[in-house]
Amino acid sequence: MIRTKNITGIILAGGKSSRMGTDKGLLEINQKPFVTHIADALQPLVSEIMIVSDNSKYDVFGYRRILDVFKDSGPLDGVYSGLKASKTEYNLVLSCDIPLIKTIVLKQLIDSIDATNDVFQIESNGKTMPLVALYKKTCFRTFQELLVNHEKRLQFAVNQCKVKNIKLKHRYDHTITNVNTKQEFKLLNYEH
């Protein structure tokens, strides 16, 4: 059993949010910012929470904020920057646009840790979720090499590591809902 002191929570909040038109992690559902919902789900499982973002508005949450190392390189850089700054072997990495995430889903990732794999990612409805995943810190070396060579595709980078997919039980599918557009945000607020 991996103990929580060996896990860091990394929230990626560095996206351009071009479809939403505003910083997604700061949007609110039930009077709480997305980032707070995500941090609440991470809290029981990790020793530290970090937010990867160049936006100083995230400092209000009181977590360590990490800047992107490779600017404009998308989520791959976000994961890399978080892993590089992490002090623990295992790291739960989440995008800032999944406010319905639950601790029980993240615990499934921790429970699936084995000696063979480097990345443990959620699979839901046949889709893999590299931004609802547990990464070994050592992945950052592989990602660094790719970023230096101008690779920006996160899924491509993840596939260079040993990956284990964790099938999500259908009753939890809603917990990993991405909110990318104003319409999806409206729908989310309407349903909750």
Score class of each variant (00 low, 15 high):
Arg171Phe: 15
Ile66Phe: 04
His150Glu: 14
Ala13Thr: 03
Glu28His: 12
Glu28Asn: 15
Asp97Gly: 12
Leu67Trp: 03
Phe61Asn: 04
Glu184Pro: 02
Asp54Glu: 09
Arg171Gly: 12
Gly78Phe: 00
Ile66Ser: 02
Val60Cys: 14
Asp97Ser: 13
His174Ala: 12
Leu131Thr: 13
Thr22Phe: 12
His192Phe: 14
Gly15Met: 01
Thr177Pro: 05
Ile10Lys: 02
Phe120Glu: 02
Asp173Ala: 10
Leu94Val: 08
Ile29Ala: 05
Val179Glu: 06
Thr175His: 04
Ile104Thr: 12
Phe34Glu: 08
Asn165Ile: 04
Ala133Met: 09
Asn189His: 03
Glu191Val: 14
Ser18Gly: 02
Asp23Glu: 12
Gln31Phe: 10
Tyr63His: 15
Asp114Gln: 10
Thr8Leu: 01
Ser95Phe: 04
Ser17Tyr: 06
Asn55Glu: 13
Lys152Gly: 03
Gln108Ser: 15
Val93Lys: 00
His170Lys: 15
Ala115Asp: 12
Asp40Thr: 15
Thr22His: 11
Asp97Val: 13
Val132Gln: 07
Gly82Val: 11
His150Cys: 11
Asn159Pro: 05
Val79Pro: 08
Thr181Tyr: 08
Asp40Val: 13
Cys139Ile: 00
Val35Arg: 02
Arg3Pro: 10
Leu45Asp: 03
Ser47Ile: 00
Cys96Asn: 09
Asn117Cys: 11
Leu131Tyr: 07
Ile104Phe: 03
Lys169Gln: 13
Glu184Trp: 01
Met129Trp: 15
Asn55Ser: 13
Ile49Asp: 02
Cys96His: 07
Leu134Cys: 12
Thr181His: 07
Val93Ser: 01
Thr175Met: 02
Asn159Trp: 07
Asp68Lys: 11
Thr8Gln: 07
Thr181Pro: 09
Tyr135Glu: 03
His192Pro: 00
Ser17Gln: 02
Asp59Lys: 14
Lys107Thr: 14
Val105Cys: 10
Lys16Ser: 15
Val93Ala: 01
Lys32Asp: 08
Ile104Leu: 06
Asn91Leu: 00
Lys57His: 10
Lys57Ser: 10
Lys186Arg: 13
Leu147Ser: 10
Leu94Phe: 04
Ser81Leu: 04
Thr138Arg: 14
Gln31Pro: 00
Phe185Ser: 04
Leu42Met: 13
Tyr80Asn: 03
Ile110Cys: 14
Phe143Asn: 03
Gln144Pro: 09
Asn178Gln: 15
Leu147Thr: 10
Leu92Met: 04
Asp54Val: 05
Leu100Lys: 11
Leu109Asn: 10
Ser53Ile: 07
Cys161Pro: 03
Gly62Lys: 11
Lys152Ser: 06
Gln31Asn: 15
Leu131Ser: 05
Lys186Ile: 12
Asn6Thr: 00
Tyr80Gln: 04
Ile98Glu: 03
Ala85Tyr: 00
Ile10Phe: 06
Pro33Gln: 10
Ser86Asp: 02
Lys164Thr: 08
Met1Tyr: 08
Asn165Met: 09
Val119Ile: 15
Asp72Gln: 11
Asp23Asn: 13
Gln43Pro: 00
Ile38Ser: 00
Arg153Leu: 11
Tyr135Trp: 08
Ile104Lys: 11
Met129Gln: 12
His192Arg: 12
Asn149Leu: 11
Lys164Ile: 09
Leu109Ile: 10
Ser18Val: 07
Leu83Ile: 01
Asp54Ile: 04
Ile176Thr: 15
Tyr80Ile: 05
Asn178Cys: 10
Thr8Lys: 00
His192Asn: 12
Lys167His: 06
Leu45Arg: 09
His37Gln: 09
